[in-house]
Design a protein around this nucleic acid. Sequence first.
DNA 1: TAAGATAGCGCC
DNA 2: AAAGGGCGCTATCTTA
Length: 940
Amino acid sequence: MQRRDEKRMVVSRIYTPPGFEVTTIPCDGTRALWKQKSIELFKQKREYDCSPYSFKYEKMDINAIRIQDKPKSQKQLISRDVGQLIDNKRPNGLSSKDILKEDVLNNESFMQRMKNEKQFQSNKLGHTGSGSTDKAQTNGRPHKPGIHERLTNIYERVLVVDNASMAREVVSKLTNQYRHLIHACDTEVAKIEVKEETPIDHGEITCFSIYSGPEADFGNGKSCIWVDVLDGGGRDLLHEFAPFFESPDIKKVWHNYSFDNHVIENYGISVSGFHADTMHMARLWDSSRRINGGYSLEALTGDQKVMRGAEPCYKELIGKVSMKNIFGKKKVKKDGSEGKLTTIAPVEELQREAREPWICYSALDAISTLQLYKSLESQLSKMPWNMDGKPVLKKSMFDFYLEYWQPFGEILVRMETEGMLVDRAYLAVTEKVAKAEQEVAASRFRKWASRYCPDAKYMNVGSDTQLRQLLFGGICNSKDPLVTLPEVKTFKVPNVDKVIEEGKKTPTKFCDIKLCSIRVDLPVETYTASGWPSVSGDALKTLARKISSEYVVNDAAGSQLDDVVFDDSETMTDEDLESKELSVVENEDESGHVGNLRRFQTPEEGIEACHAISSLCELCSIDSLISNFILPLQSSNLSGKSGRVHCSLNINTETGRLSARRPNLQNQPALEKDRYKIRQAFIAAPGNSLIVADYGQLELRVLAHLANCKSMLDAFKAGGDFHSRTAVNMYPHIREAIEKKRVLLEWYPQPGEDKPPVPLLKDAFASERRKAKMLNFSIAYGKTPVGLSRDWKVSVAEAKETVNLWYKERKEVLKWQQARKKEAREDGRVHTLLGRARVFPSLTDASSSLRGHVERAAINTPVQGSAADVAMCAMLEISKNNRLKELGWKLLLQVHDEVILEGPTESAEVAKAKPFGGKNFLKVDLAVDAKCAQNWYSAK
DNA sequence: TAAGATAGCGCC
DNA sequence: AAAGGGCGCTATCTTA
């Protein structure tokens, strides 16, 4: 990042043809320098597909543009709903609400229910009542009277440990007499915002409980221990238990191990002896519980189907009860009546003031966890383990758990602990640049919009509703033509000009603006699910393109023309492909408008609209980069004391992939589209380097293996560019060209050669290769010819023809896919390579959209899930590798087909050769590309 | 006021 | 009628 005086920053802007991005290039040099930079930028962005480009050289002084008093103000003032989780603020007891990790789990299950309802909406509508059964299961029971009495029964079985001598006695029993038992543990933690903060270096343990099963007796027949570390002996008491927690031989079972591990390790105790995480076991047992109940301890132990594997001695006690059900109080409204909201007092307060029920609540967590473990162990043990379709001799899915997911669970926790080092200074600079560029774009758009609607000057350009109003006001809903968007609508926006309303003395924080339609007949590209025109970036770009094709023949008036020809490049993203396809100018213009709107009156008006809309796209994309990546990565909520960012890695997907949360490090902007090079902010510590290793076409290789497809296996065996080979297979004329040596499939420059003797396939038959590539990806997802025809802007018949070309040489794939659909229909489940199952709802009376979804999922899950299995095996190998361990290399992150390691620079080259060794279950070789660098951006 | 709903966008 | 699998996150708007 070059040093620049922000206050006097001057930028120049390039305009790609209307409908494409407007790019601002900071530049304080000459025009020649600017041009050079522009070309570099475009080479980098690989936007080679739409020439001639029009560049407009335009100097702008940032200072000249009024930077509004932090548009942030609006974002901050308006209520923020954190990720659809229940927002429970508890800054040191200031708020009356509280939250524990279980609540997050509950919320998670809720989200999953919600998501499911959305996803399978049509199905649920057809089956009355099915939507409410979950609620009755999880919430209904605890409301029954008697819950407190039953909790009290627990109290008699719990040994309360609140002094050192008692602790020592108990620990002695745990580490000697009872060391062979399986112990369930659970902690209660205060002073942490579970859904915002990483548990690493956050939170304080107030108490913990250990249950070792009915055969343990810690005195007076009490088999459960509850340890008070809030008052009493405080944290010294916790340290008394270090020998227990740290012993690798004493088996410990947890529900959501990751959280408890981190909070305990915050006290300098390194937890060992991880035996099982009941959440992972439950997910292995049934990955579709997100549809029905979720994976919270409460939901699992409250479900008879889950618990039926437990022996009577583990069943006698009741399942977990959530805090809300024990300690939740209805908020009292001002008038004294009972409100709808439930609040929970802070953990510390409950522990001090509601001691007895609190102890029961907390002890019940450990007890329930062990019950759950016993039940799941028994149930998983009854499930035979089939690997790659063949039974593994005398082994069950519980063996699978112990062999794979148990060590994997431990790896994930280590990775979370490690975290990634983030260069905050870099992000801070980037943030400023991004905000400045955003302002430039915003004011351009506002200026244009306010010509049509004066109040648009103050509109919130980040609000899709307001944008829709401005651009499409008056339009009919595509689903219900009787409903129309009003011509004028009022919105509340921050009162930036401090207008004082009549009868008021001081300016209010907000004021109303009236947004009217620009009243121009714009073609509508796509509609949202609810029937209104979409204002997504994609839709807007298409819109701008359509306007330009109508009004602009060649180029924006007065701008300089520069013809730029760029080389084709090796790594095109799918996005590139898409825009390339979309860039075909369309002539048809079916707008959904009825009546009295006008067209743009002059070409200039059209051009300006294009530019304004381009600015809008730019502004939105910058905004999303800032708020999704640049800002959160700098937050101390997500990083520990060392400044490293610790995401949470979860096995919580239907297919067995990992997901990352708080922050989601798996969706950091990819290289090509990363205009602020955010990946450069992920760096290695001084003296260290990063290794980024990824599998090439992992999922396609998995598909080739699963379907046993000769054509694909051969192509992978031959190596080189897989997509080109696919194209050769599909199109006879390409095959002929290859055979007659008119084009080359691949070319590796020999000394003395600087260009290939004949054109390369990917240049000569670029569009065919593109289609082949898209098909390669789409087929595994079950994309339909209709979807492809929409992407490619061709008729369905044509798309279907292309799809048939693909399948012609890959009949095994078609056969395999049909077999998976049949399996999903008849057995209600499909399997991955290592034998994990994904169950589907019954399709007998499902709606066709649900059926379609299930069928596509059925053909995708084995591919995606098996790829996840392969990636997991690779990670297990890496963590088992002693050489890497000696050298000090550690896993940091996995992004589905890629892993990131960090270690000392001097051994980087040695380590680079290591990743992804180990056993390959597939019939195809796996291609691994490993690079080493100082940051994530350079290592790709 | 807080929760749900909707739209949109980032990744593989 | 719709028509690509799997995720997490943010912002705005509506509703209770």
